[in-house]
Design a binder for these strands. Structure first.
Length: 518
DNA sequence: TTGGACTTTAAATAT
DNA sequence: ATATTTCCAAGTCCAA
């Protein structure tokens, strides 16, 4: 029954795709006849205009590598088969890269990110000489404008806001609440750039008032920064580093100190980019695949990341030890997210087909029971609390986006959304906008669907001819309401870069909400 | 129950 | 233009 339904849906999509491709081809022919600057030419030119560069020269190492012994796994469980396979694949893949002639940029002789211990930012930097210092400078300067808890900031210091009111920072998730008019979200050519080669796995905005900086992590362990509206003296404002050896599963920025950024990797490493020390410090390392990571906004000393088949490790960053490690799911955990309202509550989404809400006070190493479980028919790829914490949005490959509400999130409704991304496209994840009203999620037609929460359906789709591929990872700028970053994905990923784009609200058509920290 | 073989998918590259 | 390659998901089917 369900199979037949899926087949029918699949056939329908297939026919639609064929039709769309035909139409597109036809349209392109007409355009090129009408205009010398055809849509495609303009697009290609634009995309190639702003992109990362790798420095062709080898840089001398800052220090000789120190090989340390791998610490033994704290948990007495052997790595699961999937993880072991992943790791061996990883090694094979690195070998493959090194013997492929056109991939020389990857075989640059530098300290391997898989070695333990800190990695100097200078050594991990792979762009034009000197510009890494510019990034360090930019982040250090911007740090001064970071809000502290309870700060009140005059609105004129923020772009795109109505100038009459002040706003306060929200205790849990420091964020400006606002409704955007999605019709005004536009993708501009100057807001497209190629940041990293390969598939983008993670994407985050820096939570700053004075700039729009995005950071992405890709499949190869590269991390790319983009100062979207940067100054002229930092080139394109794009900086490329190589601090990891595999897919970067999570990026987390300390909301109170943007000079500290955590990154997690499938290779089992968690690093902390410390701009003050100018290193990618090693926080954690194991033989297990780290599939996701989250920082509690209520307690930034604790870092949470998932390990292997359903495990979660709660790591005390300052003490450098595990607070608690337990198995929460039957399969890999794809996301971890904290409730902005209740500091003890967090949610995990898993390939085992469930999203579970947990209470930190009721955790134990043996058999913790979730406060609530949202069940899907297939793997759940994300579960995120809304900005106020009143809703939960889950995205599953069963072609549903779940919306849960109620005191215990016991009321769940499912919105249909086609999520069959296949193998080459990263999974879709519905993320929250700037208030509890809407969810943004990529679609297979190179668009961004906007799901209305009260409407319980897709109410708009953001589209642009400038968008050259399917967008699948997003983040919203916390203080620049109406600025949505998206990363495209998919395809082969050895030498060609992937692009990142920002939809931006061109107008002032939104309101400011002030949230009480109760 | 588990594990291997096979399939699906989009987009850049190679031909 | 067309064919090939990617390969860190996740399903199905089938044999052990």
């Amino acid at each position: 029954m369900g199979n037949n339904e899926r087949m029918t849906e699949y056939e329908r999509r297939r026919l639609e795709n064929i039709k769309r491709n035909d139409e597109m081809l036809a349209a392109l022919k007409i355009h090129s006849k009408l205009n010398d600057l055809s849509a495609v030419a303009a697009k290609r030119q634009r995309v190639e205009g702003k992109s990362y560069k790798r420095s062709p020269v080898k840089k001398p190492k800052t220090e000789s590598p120190v090989v340390l012994r791998r610490s033994l796994r704290t948990r007495g469980v052997p790595p699961d088969a999937a993880t072991a396979k992943g790791l061996s694949d990883d090694i094979d893949y690195e070998k493959q890269i090194k013997k492929t002639p056109q991939l020389n940029s990857y075989s640059v002789d530098r300290k391997s990110p898989r070695e333990q211990g800190p990695l100097a930012m200078r050594d991990a930097y792979t762009g034009d000489d000197g510009l890494d210092q510019k990034l360090i400078e930019t982040l250090s300067c911007s740090q001064k404008s970071i809000l502290s808890e309870g700060d009140t900031v005059p609105c004129e210091s923020i772009d795109n806001l109505e100038k009459s009111e002040d706003f306060e920072t929200f205790k849990g998730r420091k964020m400006l609440l606002g409704a955007v008019n999605v019709d005004k979200l536009q993708l501009k050519s100057e807001n497209i750039a190629r940041l990293v080669p390969g598939r983008i796995m993670s994407l985050k905005f820096f939570p700053t008032l004075d700039m729009q900086m995005v950071v992405v992590g890709n499949k190869f362990g590269d991390i790319g920064f983009w100062n979207v509206n940067g100054m002229k003296d930092d080139g394109d404002g794009i900086y490329l580093f190589h601090p990891h050896s595999g897919p970067i599963s999570g990026i987390v920025i300390d909301p109170y100190s943007i000079t500290k950024m955590y990154s997690s990797c499938y290779d089992g490493f968690v690093r902390l980019m410390d701009v003050e020390k100018e290193v990618f410090d090693m926080v954690y390392c194991s033989e297990y695949t780290v599939y996701s990571m989250s920082l509690s906004p209520h307690n930034i000393k604790s870092l949470y990341f998932s390990e292997g088949k359903g495990g979660v490790n709660m790591w005390d960053v300052r003490a450098g030890k595990s607070l608690l490690s337990c198995d929460l799911h039957e399969d890999r955990i794809n996301t971890i997210d904290f409730n902005p309202e209740n500091e003890n509550v967090f949610v995990t989404s898993s390939t085992d087909g469930t999203a579970c809400i947990w209470d930190l006070r009721r955790m134990n190493a043996d058999k913790p029971t979730p406060l609530m479980t949202v069940s899907h028919k297939r793997a759940v790829h994300s579960a995120y609390f809304s900005p106020t914490g009143k809703f939960l949005a889950t995205t599953s490959i069963d072609d549903k986006v779940g919306l849960s509400s109620g005191a215990n999130y016991e009321n769940t409704s499912m919105v249909y959304h086609y999520n069959q991304t296949g193998r080459w496209i990263s999974t879709f994840r519905g993320i929250w906008g700037w208030d509890d009203s809407s969810i943004y999620i990529g679609n297979m037609k190179r668009g961004v669907d906007v799901i209305s929460v009260p409407g319980n359906r897709i109410v708009a789709t953001l589209e642009s001819d400038l968008l050259s591929a399917i967008p699948c990872r997003f983040d919203v700028h916390l203080y620049n309401v109406g600025m949505l970053a998206g990363a495209t994905s998919g395809g082969q990923g050895n030498v060609f870069p992937r692009e990142l784009m920002c939809f931006q609200d061109s107008g002032l058509n939104f309101r400011i909400g002030i949230v009480d920290s109760t």
